Simulated assay, not measured.
Amino acid sequence: MYRRLVFIALFLTFTVVVLGAFVRLSDAGLGCPDWPGCYGQLSPAHASEQIAEAVAEAPHGPVSMPKAWKEMIHRYLAATLGFGILVIALLAWRRRQDANVRVGIAIALVGVVIVQGLLGKWTVTLLLKPAIVTGHLIGGLTTMSLLALLALKAAGGQRYGVSSGLLRWARLSLLVVIAQIVLGGWTSTNYAALACTDFPTCRGSWWPAMDVANAFHVVRELGMTAQGDLLSNEALTAIHWMHRLGAAVVTIVLLVLAFRLIAAGRRAMGAAVAGALVVQVCLGIANVLFSLPLPLAVAHNAGAALLLLTMVVVNERLLPARQWGWVGRRKHENAYA
């Protein structure tokens, strides 16, 4: 049951992350402007009168029945996931002597989910502040990564002893992917994905005019500078262009990792890294060339999650067999004491 729940939760987390991107990209993040219900009701159907009034006041505003359902379905799935993770933590604690259970990670996941719930609330109540929305995305991907570690341990499988140089490069690759995902989240939450509509240049230049200071000022309202002025096109350009530069760095680092994995005899891993990278790069370019169609934009978010999962699996499997988590190491030592 524990193993099945972990894998179900991992799949559900991926679904919630992708659905969250769909909600954000379809401008449904404020489809229900309160939390956790919709106008204090269990579902949009129960809040139909309030939604109709909001639509009458602002026909093109953030509230509508379809947007409300998108938002609430995302919340229902997230709540289900949170309950599932709590059950996983309880089962992990009961089976803490099992070498295939990482009780420390399972308990940490409960804390992550609590923070995620708060970030989900603040995303709505603080009106889509970029820092909060980006943090919410990072929290979802953190949840997914930790569940992947639980799933890998629960499934067993082999760890490969590789050279320390290759292991360090794999860790570096994971870090640059994480940094790029954060940049991508910042680009999306600031609606800067179309700040550059040409490729490979931006606004016809290899180094366009940019306002980096305001672009990466964290504490501010959506579309505004910290001083309360409208965020300029130069600031949006800076956000977009930095994400592109990050993509170039990720491409170089991950291609080196893929070739090193293949050279070390880990051809399947190398092919998985290269394949996930190529798909993600192509989706990113297509989003620019085709002006961010919703299916491609959501697919780009899903590709980022899959690339992160790939890097988590690679890093876990490349660890020497003798390396364990802190709980697992203690059990391993006690077994031979």
Score class of each variant (00 low, 15 high):
R3M: 00
R3T: 00
R4L: 04
L10M: 06
F11N: 14
V18D: 15
A21C: 12
V23Y: 08
G29R: 01
G29F: 00
L30P: 10
G31S: 05
C32V: 07
P36S: 15
Y39N: 02
Y39C: 04
Y39I: 02
Y39M: 04
Q41F: 14
Q41G: 07
L42S: 05
A45T: 12
H46A: 15
H46P: 11
A52Q: 10
A54V: 03
E57V: 05
A58T: 13
P59S: 13
P59M: 11
P62K: 03
M65A: 15
A68P: 11
W69C: 04
K70L: 15
M72F: 04
M72N: 11
R75A: 07
R75L: 00
A78P: 00
L81Q: 07
L81I: 09
R94Q: 05
R95M: 12
R96L: 05
A99H: 10
A99V: 08
N100I: 00
V101G: 06
R102Q: 14
A106I: 02
I114H: 07
V115R: 08
V115M: 12
V115W: 07
W122F: 09
T123A: 11
T123E: 09
L126F: 09
L127R: 13
A131V: 03
I132M: 08
T134E: 10
G139L: 00
S145N: 11
S145R: 08
A148W: 04
A148V: 03
L149R: 14
A151R: 04
A155P: 11
G156M: 01
G157W: 05
S164I: 15
L166F: 02
L167H: 13
L167G: 13
W169V: 04
L175A: 09
V176Y: 10
V177M: 03
A179G: 13
Q180D: 09
Q180F: 00
Q180T: 02
Q180E: 12
L183N: 12
L183V: 00
G184W: 01
A192W: 02
A195L: 03
T197R: 12
D198W: 01
C202E: 02
C202D: 03
W206V: 13
P208N: 13
P208K: 12
A209M: 13
M210S: 05
V212I: 04
F216R: 11
F216C: 07
R220M: 04
R220L: 00
E221T: 04
M224T: 11
A226C: 08
D229P: 01
L231D: 02
S232A: 07
N233Q: 15
A235L: 11
L236W: 01
H243P: 13
V250A: 08
V250D: 07
I252V: 12
I252W: 09
V256H: 06
L257K: 09
F259A: 14
F259H: 15
I262T: 14
R266M: 12
R267V: 08
G270Y: 13
A272H: 03
V273S: 11
L277R: 02
V278Q: 09
L283M: 00
I285E: 03
A286T: 04
A286W: 02
L289N: 07
S291L: 14
L294F: 06
V298K: 06
H300F: 02
A302Y: 01
A302K: 06
A305N: 13
A305D: 14
L308F: 05
T310G: 02
M311G: 12
V312D: 07
V313G: 11
V314E: 10
R317G: 10
A321N: 14
G328W: 01
G328R: 01
R329T: 10
H332E: 14
Y336M: 15
